[in-house]
Simulated assay, not measured.
Amino acid sequence: MSEFHDLAELALNREGETWGNLGYWQTATEYSDACRALALLLGEQAGLNPQSVVFDAGFGCGDQLLLWLEHFRVARVFGANLSRSQTAYAKAKLARAGFPAAAAAILQANISDPEVWSAALDRPSHVLALDCAYHFPNRVEFFALAQQHLALEGRLALTDFMLADQHRTGSFTHRLLRWMLKRSHIAEANIVHRDIYLRQLQQTGFGDIRITDISEHVMPGFAHSIHTLRRNGKLSWSGRVKYNVTGRFLEWAYRRSILRYCVISATKMG
């Protein structure tokens, strides 16, 4: 059976890299570099260091796992990903890089399953969700699970979409947004205004919350990169359909001030 989250992103990367996020395009000009830049930004916002024990919720094909281990030199990584194909690819990638299961214990599973979190050998000091939380069945449930299983004063860090402050939910534009969210396998309840997002974090036991809008360095850049790849014939027919639609949607949502893309970090309280 086909998966919505599969290995399609491999076509966007240069050889040997398998990133799968929207990228941070402040200085990057190629997709792989922009994706790495977004992961670096998240790791820095989280405050990763050699003592960190990381739970990665939705680790893609493994490139970000290697970044946590090699660049930030974290002590240990574990996590879960819903995609069977991506998880298998990530396990093989970690093995080729010389990281045994003791250093990076990952599995294919639903992030909403409490047993996935309970199976960990250590309480994580950090929970990360790089460009994937909007796809979770229920993001507030994810916040609660992260808060429950994080070590005391542990950090949650993610990149995520929010509704722009000026966007009104009863508008015709919002009806178009709802249609696009459904097509993209994104629960409408996950896309909320900043004040609601902040309150959700607070109500699930987080404080010291930082939300930074990085939309201008993410959404237009991704759209432009897809246009360039399509123009240069780098995408298959299915890739052109999938990514061209995504790129045009993000360009529209940014230009019309409908969505904003942010990096968020918060500390477990009490």
Score class of each variant (00 low, 15 high):
residue 1 M to A: 03
residue 2 S to G: 02
residue 2 S to W: 04
residue 2 S to V: 00
residue 2 S to H: 13
residue 3 E to N: 09
residue 6 D to E: 11
residue 7 L to Q: 10
residue 7 L to G: 13
residue 8 A to R: 12
residue 12 L to E: 02
residue 16 G to P: 06
residue 21 N to Y: 00
residue 22 L to A: 04
residue 26 Q to T: 07
residue 29 T to P: 00
residue 33 D to R: 11
residue 33 D to T: 08
residue 34 A to R: 04
residue 34 A to H: 02
residue 41 L to K: 13
residue 44 E to Q: 15
residue 44 E to M: 10
residue 44 E to S: 15
residue 45 Q to K: 11
residue 47 G to M: 07
residue 47 G to K: 05
residue 48 L to R: 08
residue 50 P to M: 14
residue 52 S to E: 02
residue 54 V to C: 09
residue 58 G to V: 01
residue 60 G to S: 09
residue 61 C to Y: 07
residue 61 C to R: 08
residue 63 D to Y: 03
residue 67 L to A: 09
residue 68 W to R: 09
residue 76 R to Y: 06
residue 80 A to S: 13
residue 81 N to T: 13
residue 85 S to R: 14
residue 85 S to E: 13
residue 85 S to G: 10
residue 86 Q to F: 03
residue 95 A to Y: 03
residue 96 R to F: 03
residue 98 G to F: 04
residue 107 L to D: 07
residue 109 A to R: 02
residue 112 S to H: 13
residue 113 D to L: 04
residue 117 W to V: 02
residue 118 S to H: 13
residue 118 S to R: 14
residue 120 A to P: 00
residue 122 D to I: 08
residue 123 R to P: 02
residue 124 P to G: 01
residue 138 N to Q: 04
residue 147 Q to C: 02
residue 150 L to Q: 00
residue 154 G to A: 12
residue 156 L to T: 00
residue 157 A to S: 10
residue 157 A to W: 03
residue 160 D to L: 11
residue 161 F to D: 05
residue 162 M to E: 10
residue 163 L to V: 05
residue 163 L to S: 08
residue 164 A to R: 14
residue 165 D to G: 14
residue 165 D to K: 15
residue 166 Q to P: 02
residue 166 Q to R: 01
residue 167 H to C: 12
residue 170 G to R: 09
residue 177 L to F: 14
residue 178 R to L: 15
residue 179 W to I: 05
residue 179 W to C: 00
residue 182 K to V: 04
residue 184 S to V: 00
residue 187 A to N: 07
residue 188 E to W: 10
residue 193 H to C: 05
residue 195 D to P: 01
residue 196 I to R: 11
residue 197 Y to A: 12
residue 198 L to F: 13
residue 202 Q to V: 05
residue 204 T to W: 05
residue 213 D to R: 07
residue 217 H to Q: 10
residue 228 T to W: 06
residue 235 L to N: 12
residue 235 L to R: 14
residue 238 S to Y: 05
residue 239 G to V: 14
residue 239 G to N: 05
residue 241 V to Y: 02
residue 245 V to N: 04
residue 253 A to V: 10
residue 254 Y to I: 09
residue 254 Y to G: 01
residue 255 R to S: 15
residue 256 R to V: 02
residue 260 R to Q: 09
residue 262 C to V: 15
residue 267 T to C: 06
